[in-house]
Structure formats: structure tokens, C-alpha cells
Amino acid sequence: MHELGIVFHMIDTLTEVGAENGLTSIARVTLDLGEVTGVVPSYLLDCWRWAADRTELLHGAELDVCQIDAVTVCNDCGRTYATLEHGKVCPHCASDNTELLHGLEIEIREVEGA
């Protein structure tokens, strides 16, 4: 289960964040999730519910998932384009000298807690 591993690492990170900020409970977590991470949001939410409720800090905490669109930049013409639509080859100049700019993020944006 790919998503379960991600959730365990989220909980590790949130435990650190909680300790650093003197939080005893977290009610809401906002996650930025890149479009090409391969993580399935509905599976992630199921794993989150299961694992978060087993901790004191995150019991009942809501998880908001915000999708970050995948964007690729072309190193030859310098323009960007939607990765999912066009893949590796630049639709502007047909070069395959391209790099993913956004879309692999799995990043905790913010937490709400007390």
C-alpha cells in the first residue's frame, strides 16, 4: 500500500510540527499533492482516517488534499506546458529536452491545531 506509507511519513512530520509548536491536538491538515505522484487521493484519505485516529495528536483530524497541477518546462524554448496532456515532448517546439517543474509535491501546507 503506497498510500499507507505516505500517511505514516505524514504522521511523523506532523508529530514534529506539533512538538515544535506546542500543539496537543491538530484538527485540520492541508496537503499539497502533485498530479503525477501516483498517489490516489481517495485511498490516501482512507489510510489517513485509519492511521490518524490511532494517534492522540491527530485523532479526528480532517485532511484536505489540494491538487498541484503537473507542469513541464522546455529547456530549449523556455516555455511551460501541461504535463498530463503533452507528456515528455514540448508542444511548442517538439523538443524532448524537458523537465518536470511541478507535480511531484507531497507537501504539508498548513495545520490547524491547539
Binding site: H9, V17, I108, R109
Partner: peptide
């Protein structure tokens, strides 16, 4: 009960593993 706070984190989930 403490007041609810919003904390900006901006931290990759892979950071602690890395």
C-alpha cells in the same frame, strides 16, 4: 482550551525520511 491556531508548515512529507 487553547485557541485554535493556523500554522504554515510547507514541509515535504519525505523530509524526515530524507
Amino acid at each position: 482550551m487553547d485557541e485554535i491556531r493556523v500554522i504554515e508548515v510547507k514541509r515535504s512529507v519525505f523530509e524526515s525520511n530524507d
